[in-house]
């Protein structure tokens, strides 16, 4: 077992990243003051960074990093004081973070739109076979992977989802 587990508030996969009420709900539940977006595209696009910042709930700071910067910022940090909501667009990025030492305990899959190779699996979440395999690998390494769009709504674990597919 690794011992540099970062005490992250929540790592969430949502291809819309900051999305009005959804993120506002999570921020409230987590009492988060800090949103960290790890996404190469947004990190290279100052216009989209402003789009994200404007959509953030009041009083919450938004930081945007490329994958490599995100690893450097989040790796091994005991971030107990400042509960962080980490937002990612894909399971691929979550696995890259984990493999590079960002050992989150909980991964929330919240929203992934339809795309070639993906099929709807739960509510507004579509996943490809490859993405399901990535999530399973994270479960195998001890991450609690759940699919849930909004706090308080129904959630399912990856295991129970896979048993139904």
């Amino acid at each position: 077992m690794e011992h540099d587990i970062a005490d992250l508030g929540l790592v969430r996969i949502d291809d819309r990243l900051i999305h009005g009420q959804v993120v506002a709900n999570w921020v409230k539940v987590l009492r988060s003051r800090r949103i960290v977006i790890v996404d190469d595209d947004v990190a290279a696009d100052s216009f989209m960074q402003n789009v994200m910042r404007l959509a953030a709930p009041p009083g919450v700071t938004v930081e945007v990093y490329s994958l490599q910067e995100g690893i450097n910022v989040l790796k091994g940090k005991p971030l107990q004081a400042d509960k962080i909501l980490v937002l990612l667009k894909s399971p691929q990025v979550a696995e890259q973070l984990y493999r590079n030492g960002v050992h989150f305990k909980v991964l929330n899959v919240g929203g992934l739109g339809a795309a070639p190779g993906r099929r709807p699996v739960f509510k507004s979440i579509s996943l490809s076979d490859e993405e399901l395999a990535i999530l399973q690998r994270l479960v195998d390494r001890g991450v609690e992977v759940t699919l849930q769009t909004v706090p308080g709504e129904k959630k399912v674990s990856l295991a129970s989802l896979l048993s139904r597919l």
């Binding site: 999305h19 009005g20 989209m48 789009v51 404007l54 959509a55």
Partner: peptide, 16 residues
């Protein structure tokens, strides 16, 4: 209608 949410996300992309 308001800032934040799906309409905002869709519209903001067009404002370049």
């Amino acid at each position: 209608d308001f800032l934040g949410g799906t309409p905002y996300n869709a519209v903001a992309r067009c404002l370049r």
